[in-house]
Nucleic acid binder design. Structure first.
Lengths: 228, 228
DNA sequence: CAAAATAGAGAGCACTGCTCTTGACTCCGG
DNA sequence: CCGGAGTCAAGAGCAGTGCTCTCTATTTTG
């Protein structure tokens, strides 16, 4: 077995190195990752890469999953670092962590939340990691309701919307009122609109003080969801 | 002059046809537009295209500008079709028009609001057309304040944010209070987060009733900006 | 009517993802 | 311990890409 596992170990290291090099290329050259360039950087010929990843899309998928995990880690760590009772502080911490990670890894962020690559369909493996960030953000609301520190709004929801949200709540946030979930999703949506606008240069000409603007915008949504 | 203008006319028609074919390719094949494919569809050789567009990026820029104009037209028409005093009706009309246009032209929407193409920087010509949609949406707030039908919130803004917003208001929305502008931009941001999530498949598994969800989400932001 | 400008074709360069074959190396069971 | 099996990297090659350059018609213009 040790003989076999030394091969397996080398192979695993190889895969890790390919991913690392690919991530570096992603960061410097943008989203159009070139397999051949990665191979060149590793002193291999391009066809050798196919021993480890059956196609370029599979490499991209691996990078996407790792990026989701990295973002999820960053967001959850930020949340965990704040006193559980300080709901507003947690909200801001999560939002800021997401933006900070995005600014530090723009190409990977674009991979996750930018326009989908034409021929590429995200495989199922990405679904769970993709849920971690919103789970963390909306988990704050769940905690707030459970602690009686958020009074759920009494928005009247159209029946189909209420049903959809009830389904989501049942699966992911048991006990979270539908109307509050709706507001939370508005905050979640606005957060990624904000980050995208920021990252994709849409605020460049008009908003010089990006950090303060971001905080104020997320504070508006914190108000909307009723954080004390 | 007529002799010269017949050539100019043919040339203009040629440019239009190239753009039309390119738009068709964009719609069917996604964002990775191939010059050679466009040339093939027109019965030309690829190098002939370069008589009309100096590079692929210039073709893309032309398409982007036209797309902004089309979105701007759709949004402004939707706004104009509603009674000026019906602020909330106008808000919903504008939001729906933006989403409807995006759903009808997903590839062009991705070109405008998706991740930026790596080597490509949007030229200045795109700035003005790009401003039309947010101008329309936030114009509703300006009208509401002017008519005394919106009472501006008294959020306290950090000084740098207030200054940035004052600058924007001075240039584009004279008389619009900074705090209200901030909330309006939150609505604008959330709108495009919503559309992006919808279009890029992020809501696929969780929200079956997309239309109703969209209306409710934009209604939340209408509340936030204080529409009666 | 000749000169100048323009349109299109064709070849070619450097690049891409991907496949297939070929030769070398490592591992494992008899 | 040694021979078959599995694994790995290399190289050639295919079809595609954006783009440039040259050459030949055609049209416009002085």
């Amino acid at each position: 077995m040790p003989a076999s596992s030394i091969r397996a170990r080398v192979r695993a290291e190889m895969i890790d190195e390919i991913k690392a090099v690919a991530r570096r290329h992603l960061a410097s050259d943008g989203a159009d990752l070139s397999l051949r360039a990665v191979a060149r950087d590793m002193g291999m010929v391009s066809s050798a890469i196919y021993r480890y990843f059956p196609s370029r899309d599979d490499l991209l998928t691996a990078l996407i999953i790792e990026a989701y995990q990295a973002l999820g880690d960053a967001v959850e760590a930020a949340d965990a670092a704040v006193d559980r009772a300080d709901l507003r502080g947690r909200w801001h911490a999560v939002c800021r962590a997401a933006r900070t990670w995005a600014l530090a890894h723009p190409a990977e962020y674009a991979l996750l939340y930018g326009s989908p690559v034409p021929g590429y369909a995200a495989p199922v493996d990405t679904v769970l990691p993709a849920q971690r960030p919103p789970l963390t953000l909306l988990g704050i609301l769940r905690d707030g309701v459970a602690a009686g520190r958020i009074t759920p709004p009494d928005d009247d929801l159209p029946e189909p919307v209420r049903a959809d949200l009830a389904e989501i709540a049942a699966g992911l946030f048991p006990g979270l009122p539908e109307a509050l979930l709706a507001r939370g999703m508005a905050g979640w949506t606005q957060l990624f609109g904000l980050i995208s606008f920021d990252l994709f240069g849409r605020l460049d000409p008009v908003v010089p003080h990006r950090d303060a603007y971001f905080d104020h915008q997320t504070a508006l949504m914190a108000d909307l969801v009723g954080l004390p």
